[in-house]
Structure formats: structure tokens, C-alpha cells
Amino acid sequence: MTNDAGSIFEQLNAPFLYEEYAVNHDGFVSVSPQATADRLNQVIGPLRWTFQIIDQNVDMEMFYVSIFGKIAIQNDDGEWIEKSQFGDATMVIKRGERTPTAQAINDAKKKAASDCMKKCASLLSVASDVYRGRLTALRNDSREYRETASRLNLDTNSKQFKNGIVILPDSYKSIYEGNNWKGIFQSDIITMATLMEKYISGNGSEAGFNAWFKRLDEKGASLAHMDYVLQDALNKKGAGNQTPKDVPSSDSRFASMENRQKEDQAPLKNKQPEGPISGVYQMISVEGEDDPYYKLVFNFNGTTKEIMAVGPLMERIDVLNLQEGSTYSLWTRTAKGRNVLRDIRKAV
């Protein structure tokens, strides 16, 4: 501990690798005990801190372990500074059993000790951002969790994502980029809160958003689709030369944007879709700087054709992960001289 106190606490509370964070069974963000100990060793020194269990209570009626412990760190003057906290854990009882096994009791003691150590360390600023709630979680029972896991291709059976997805604050981005670390940040996530924020930023109302969201949700639109509709409407509104009084309200603009999406993605009475037709996938490129879309190239019986995919179809393309040389069934329609993708499936 040779640096000033402010620097020491900043080092103790510095972000961890994304892999060191996880969502626990209660749906809250936590950091691993080993990462906590490693941080203390790195900043304080392995011989200048200790953890001690002061009291332990094993409740065999409630199958609960509670531990009171303390962490002590040594300053440059040789004095020891102590911080104490409680830690707890519940014993796991196997299905069909009435009491926990001896192993389950010992495991609960270890978990309670780890919990106590981490909470003591948090009083020294280790992972204090976690305890302050700056890192949030998408719980595994939420729609945002399911759609984010699908969109980012996360393994929901892995230990890291089984209970939820840890969301880092955007203020961590520069640190992560500087260390060449990977993580999932708040700006990467589409939630109802971010959708409402966009809707209201276009002069819409909360009541209007609720009605708009319900309408699209009932039609099976994903959060990513809704975000595309909102962002496209905001982009068009911002790019226009209309005066404020001439700009339609967000409610009407988003409704009209939804109608334009229908025109691009659904058959109209006077514009019947073409297909299905089978084509061999060749390549893909992203076109359009202000309003991006996918340009897909397929071979149809020796004839090469370009097909444009916009909006939610771009997300569908991402999920399908098209393989060069594979055959797909496509539904298209012609709009303004272009072949526009309406649906695509892997050929059986």
C-alpha cells in the first residue's frame, strides 16, 4: 500500500473481467470469491490482509448458515484496519429428502464464508459498484433475457448465463476497450425502458407508448423489431426539414412507420408475394449508411439475383446464420424495381 488512499480505493473498485461477474440464484449480480481475493492480493499484497471468521451459526431448523467475520488490511505504518460483515447461505436439500446431507451442510458453510468475505471486502471498495447496483441483471424469467440471449447467441446453459445476463454500465466501455476485454453493456440491450425512452423522446406520451407496445406485441413483434421501428422513425424525423409545428407527433409517426413496415414485410391485396422459390446462398453485404439493409446474392437455377432484406428480416438473417452454398426457400416481392425479401427458411 504505497499509493494514496484515493488511488488504492479506485484500484480495489476497478472493473473485473466480464467472466468474473455472474447472476446468482436470487437474480442479483455477484463477483466470484476468487476474483475478490485476487484483487486484494494485487492491490494490498498477499501478506498484508487477512480474513477471519468470528462467529458461525448453523440453524438445523431453518437449514441456514450465518457467519460473522472480518477482513483486516495493514497500512504503510504497520497498523491493521478492520472491516466486519455477515454472510449467509441456505442448505440445499435433495428432492425427496427431509434434511440436508453432511456435504450440503459443509457447502453452505463455505458459501456463507465466501459471502461474508466478499461483503467485508466491499467495505474496502472491492466490487463496491456491484453492491451499489451500478451493474444490473436481466433475470432468466424475463422477456429481455430470452431475446438478448438469442440475439447475442449466448449459451443459457452455461454457469455464467444460466441465472441471468450481467449488464455493465456504459462508463466501463473505455476501460474494457483499453484492456481489449469483451462485455455486454447497457447500450447493447433493448428493454421496455429503452423503448419507452425512445418513444417519448419523439414527443410521444407514456400512454401512447403502452398502446403502441401492446399493439405490436400482440402481433408477435420482437423487442428488436420495435426498436428498429422507433429508431427509423426518429432518424426520419431528425433528417427532415419540417418545422416543429409541421412534424407529426410520435404516436402518429410511429403508427405510420409501423404501416410502412407492414408494406415491406407483409403481402398487400394489390402486391402478392412471389415464392417460395429455392435459391443457393452466395454472399451478403451491408448497404446504406443512413438506413442500412442487407443485400443478399442467391443463385436461382444458374441465374444470379440480388435480394434486399430490411427491418426485422435483417434480424432473421442474423439468426439463420446463412451458409455459403446452402439452399434456402425464399418469399419475395418486387418494390420499386427491387426484389424485397418477405420471408426466408432453410430448405428441407
Rank of each mutant, 00 (worst) to 15 (best):
Gln42Cys: 09
Gln52Trp: 04
Lys336Glu: 13
Thr99Pro: 00
Arg345Pro: 00
Asp129Ser: 12
Glu274Tyr: 07
Arg260Lys: 09
Thr101Asp: 12
Glu144Val: 15
Pro100Cys: 12
Gly45Val: 07
Ser122Val: 06
Ser174Phe: 04
Ile67His: 08
Leu341Phe: 04
Ile54Arg: 13
Arg345Asp: 10
Thr332Ile: 15
Ile165Gly: 06
Ser150Gln: 15
Gly87Trp: 01
Ile277Asn: 01
Leu17Tyr: 04
Leu223Glu: 03
Thr101Glu: 07
Gly275Glu: 02
Lys198Gln: 12
Ala211Gln: 14
Leu341Thr: 09
Pro267Gln: 03
Tyr18Ser: 12
Trp331Ala: 01
Ala102Asn: 14
Arg151Phe: 13
Leu123Lys: 15
Thr327Lys: 14
Glu324Leu: 02
Asp290Phe: 07
Tyr18Thr: 02
Ala112Asn: 11
Trp331Ile: 07
Ala112Gly: 11
Ile344Lys: 08
Tyr199Trp: 09
Met226Ser: 01
Ser249Met: 02
Glu197Leu: 09
Phe63Lys: 05
Thr156Trp: 04
Arg39Met: 11
Glu306His: 13
Arg333Gly: 01
Ala104Phe: 02
Arg253Glu: 09
Asp88Tyr: 12
Cys120Thr: 09
Val280Phe: 02
Lys162Asn: 07
Glu306Val: 10
Ala233Cys: 11
Gln261Met: 14
Lys110Arg: 13
Asp26Tyr: 12
Tyr172Arg: 02
Leu296Met: 13
Tyr145Met: 05
Glu206Thr: 08
Pro244Asp: 05
Leu234Ser: 10
Asn241Tyr: 04
Tyr293Ile: 05
Leu17Arg: 14
Leu168Arg: 12
Glu61His: 03
Trp80Glu: 07
Met1Ser: 05
Gln242Cys: 07
Ala149Tyr: 09
Glu306Cys: 02
Ala113Met: 11
Ser30Asp: 10
Asn179His: 14
Ile44Ala: 01
Asn140Thr: 12
Gln74Gly: 04
Met1Leu: 13
Glu315Asn: 12
Val29Gly: 08
Phe9Pro: 01
Leu12Gln: 02
Ile44Arg: 08
Ile93Pro: 06
Phe300Lys: 04
Gln56Ile: 15
Phe51Ala: 12
Met196Ile: 04
Asp115Phe: 03
Trp212Leu: 06
Ala22Asp: 03
Pro244Asn: 01
Gln282Asn: 13
Ile73Phe: 03
Asn157Val: 03
Arg132Pro: 00
Lys119Asp: 06
Gln34Trp: 01
Leu40Tyr: 05
Gly302Trp: 05
Phe254Thr: 08
Asn321Ala: 15
Ile284Lys: 15
Gly288Ile: 12
Asp227Cys: 02
Leu12Gly: 03
Lys119Glu: 10
Ala121Lys: 11
Ser249Leu: 06
Tyr228Trp: 11
Thr243Gly: 12
Leu135Glu: 02
Leu154Gly: 11
Pro46Gln: 05
Glu274Gln: 06
Leu47Ser: 14
Val297Gln: 12
Val23Asn: 07
Asp251Phe: 08
Thr194Gly: 05
Gly204Arg: 01
Ala211Lys: 14
Lys198Val: 00
Asn241Arg: 07
Pro46Leu: 08
Lys236Arg: 15
His225Pro: 00
Thr2Ala: 04
Lys182Trp: 02
Phe185Trp: 04
Gln74Trp: 00
Val65Lys: 03
His25Arg: 14
Gly78Ser: 13
Leu138Gly: 11
Gly164Glu: 13
Lys346Asn: 09
Lys173Gln: 14
Pro15Met: 08
Ile53Gly: 01
Gly311Trp: 10
Trp181Thr: 13
Gly238Pro: 00
Ala14Trp: 02
Gln34Tyr: 03
Arg338Ala: 07
Lys219Asn: 08
Ser285Asn: 08
Glu274Pro: 00
Arg260Trp: 03
